[in-house]
Computed example of a mutant assay.
Amino acid sequence: MEYDLNDIVEMKKEHPCHKSKYWKIIRMGADIRIKCQGCGASVLFPRSEFEKKCKKVVQRSQSSLE
């Protein structure tokens, strides 16, 4: 799966805030930080764990389209 900074991704499990499955990637490196689109909470995952829990990329950022 290919993903980039500021992409919106769908995770396998819902966040308990507003039952939102959609997250925005806000930091990439060895770890990936994602921000809930429902409540704004952020979570840091090791890259391997993020790739297991990520279902698909819903929306690509403008920079990844170029």
Rank of each mutant, 00 (worst) to 15 (best):
E14C: 05
E49Q: 12
K12W: 03
E14T: 05
S42W: 14
K35C: 11
L44Y: 10
S42N: 14
V9C: 03
K24D: 06
V58R: 14
R27Y: 14
S48M: 12
K55S: 13
I32F: 08
K13G: 07
E2P: 00
V57N: 15
S48F: 11
V58W: 08
R60G: 11
Y3S: 00
D31E: 11
S61W: 15
K52P: 07
K56H: 12
F45R: 03
G29W: 06
F45I: 10
L5S: 03
K12I: 10
V58H: 09
K55V: 11
Y22I: 08
K53P: 03
M28H: 00
Q59M: 13
K24Q: 12
F50G: 03
M11P: 02
K13F: 12
Q62M: 01
C39P: 05
H18P: 03
I34S: 12
C17V: 02
K13N: 13
S64V: 04
K21V: 02
C39K: 06
F45E: 04
R33F: 09
Q62P: 00
L44V: 13
I25W: 04
E49H: 13
V58C: 09
A30T: 05
L65M: 12
H18D: 08
A41S: 10
K52M: 10
F45G: 04
I34T: 11
R33E: 12
F50Y: 06
E66K: 06
C39V: 07
E51M: 14
E10Y: 03
I25P: 04
G29K: 08
H18G: 10
M11K: 02
H15G: 04
R33K: 08
R47T: 12
F50H: 07
P46I: 06
Q59P: 04
D7T: 02
D31A: 07
L5C: 00
K52L: 13
K55Y: 15
V57P: 09
K35L: 13
L44H: 05
V57E: 11
S20F: 08
N6W: 02
R27C: 05
Y22H: 09
S61A: 13
A30C: 01
P16L: 00
E51L: 15
G40I: 04
G40H: 06
V43K: 09
Q62T: 01
E66R: 02
K21A: 05
Q62V: 02
P16W: 01
R27A: 01
E51K: 15
